[in-house]
Design a protein around this nucleic acid. Structure first.
Lengths: 241, 241
DNA sequence: GTCGGTATTAAAACTGTATTAAGACAAAAT
DNA sequence: ATTTTGTCTTAATACAGTTTTAATACCGAC
C-alpha cells in the first residue's frame, strides 16, 4: 500500500458520490469513483483499492452480485452502504462476503470510523509505527523518558528513583542554574536545611555514574552558594576523537 | 479452531444474556458468559473465544477500556452491542479496536450474520497471516498471540490467564519500565482493590516459569520503587553456544 | 591559617522486594 | 451435590537495595 489508502466509491447518485469524494479527500484518502456495477468491477481490478464502499442500489447490477464477483478473486474489504434496512438485505450482503453494512442515512463520522477498522485490519502491525521521540540527548548521555532509562554511549546506567528524577530535572533544564531549594522542592516535595546534605550525596553519586566508560565530560556544574546546572555537551567523545 | 466456534458474551443484563445463550446454542455455537468487565477479561484469556460480543454498559468498567485491554494482547474479533447510538460512541469504540458495532435493539439475524463475517475473516486470516505477525520473539522466549501460548525454546510453558496477560504486557513494552500502577490498571482494571503484593507473587511465578530448561536469561528486571521491565535478549542460548 | 561551603566515603536506618506457604475461591469432573 | 483440580489472594519471612546520617577531606576566598 502506498502512503495514502485508496478507496473505491461505488454509488449511482452523483450528489452522494461527490459528497463522499470531498469527504475522503479532506481526510487524506485517495479515491476512485464508479457509478455502476460494470465500472465498479473494472475499477476494482485495475486500481486494486484498499477498501470498497458499495451502494447496493445500482442500475445495471445487483449489489450482492458485485460482492460475490469481487470475492471470487479478492479479499479486499467491502463496506456496503445501502438504503435498504431490512434484516434480510443485511444478512444476504454480509453472507455474500461484505465486511460491513451501513444503512442510509448514515453518519459520515461512523463511515470514516468503519473505514479505519477495515484499513487497520489490512495492516494490523503498521499502527504501532507512530512512536514519539521521547529521548533526550546531550553529548554521549541519552535519556529515554518513555523507557525510564539512561545510557552513556551504549552502556546503560542504573539509576535509583531519586537519581533518575534528579537527572531528568537537570536534563529538562539544561543550561539553567537550578537552586538548591528548587531542586529539593521538585524532588523531595519540601525541604529542610538538613536535606541539602542528601542532595550533595546524590549529586556525587550521579557524577560518578555519569563517568562510566571513560566518559569524563563534566555534565553537572556546581554553582557555589546557589545550586547546580547541567551543561550542554554537543560533541560526543566519539566525535571529538 | 475446533469444530464449533466459541463466542464470549459480555452482558450485564441477565435476560439478554440468556437470550443470547439460547440463540447461539441453537445455531451450533459454543459460548461463555461474562456479566462484567473483570470476568470478561478473565474469560477472554482462559477460553480464547473466536469472537467477543461486548455490551458497553457494564457496571465495573468502561467498555472501551475492555476493548483496549483485549487489544493489548490479542486481535480477536470484537463486536460491540450497545444501547448508545451516538456517532461519537461508535467512533470511539471502533477506533479503540472494535471490529463492528450494533445498536440495541438489534436483529438477531443481523447479529448472527455479523458473527459469520467475523468468523469468516478469522479463518481467512489464519490461513494468510504468517507466523511473524502474530508471534513475539525475544531470546529463546516466544509468544504466539493467536494461539495464546508461550514457549521457552521448544518447551511450551503453561501460563494462567493473569500470567499470560502480564507476560504480553511486558513483551509489548520490551525495553520500557512499566510502573506498578500502570501494570495493575492494565491487568486488574483498578488498583485499589488489589495490591502490589499480588503483582509480586505473579512476577515471581513468571520468572520461575521463564527459567525452564536451564534458560537462565533475566527477562524481567525489577526497578525498585518504580516497577518492572522486560529486557531484550537478542542472542538466544542456542546462538550463544 | 581559618572559615564557609562543598565533595566524598562509609555505615546505619529504612523502605521496598523475593519467595514461600497456606487459605479462599471458582470451574470442571465425577 | 461433592470432590478434584487449578488459580488467585493474603500473609509472613528473610533479604536486597535505597536513602539518610554523619564523619572526614577538600577547595577557594579573605
Amino acid at each position: 500500500m502506498s502512503n495514502k489508502p485508496m478507496i473505491l466509491v461505488v454509488e449511482d447518485d452523483a450528489a452522494v458520490r461527490n459528497l463522499m469524494a470531498v469527504t475522503l479527500e479532506t481526510r487524506g484518502y485517495r479515491y476512485h469513483l464508479a457509478p455502476n456495477g460494470t465500472e465498479a468491477l473494472i475499477e476494482a481490478t485495475t486500481h486494486q483499492p484498499d477498501v470498497i464502499l458499495l451502494d447496493l442500489g445500482l442500475p445495471d447490477m445487483d449489489g450482492v452480485e458485485i460482492i460475490r464477483k469481487v470475492r471470487s478473486w479478492s479479499a479486499m474489504p467491502i463496506i456496503v452502504i445501502s438504503a435498504r434496512s431490512e434484516d434480510s438485505d443485511k444478512v444476504e450482503a454480509l453472507d455474500a462476503g461484505a465486511d460491513d453494512y451501513l444503512t442510509k442515512p448514515f453518519s459520515v463520522d461512523e463511515m470514516l470510523a468503519r473505514i479505519r477498522v477495515a484499513l487497520r485490519r489490512l495492516n494490523a502491525d503498521q499502527q504501532a509505527v507512530s512512536r514519539e521521540n521521547t529521548c533526550y540527548e546531550n553529548g554521549s548521555l541519552r535519556i529515554d523518558y518513555a523507557a525510564g532509562c539512561a545510557w552513556i554511549g551504549d552502556e546503560e546506567i542504573h539509576l535509583t528513583p531519586i537519581e533518575y528524577r534528579l537527572l531528568c530535572l537537570l536534563a529538562r533544564n539544561t543550561g539553567k542554574v537550578l537552586t538548591h531549594n528548587y531542586i529539593l522542592k521538585e524532588i523531595w516535595g519540601s525541604y529542610t536545611s538538613s536535606e541539602v546534605g542528601s542532595l550533595r550525596v546524590f549529586m556525587a553519586m550521579l557524577r560518578k555514574k555519569l563517568q562510566v566508560g571513560g566518559d569524563a565530560q563534566p555534565y553537572i556544574q556546581t554553582h557555589i552558594g546557589i545550586g547546580y546546572r547541567m551543561l550542554r555537551q554537543d560533541r560526543t567523545t566519539e566525535d571529538a576523537q
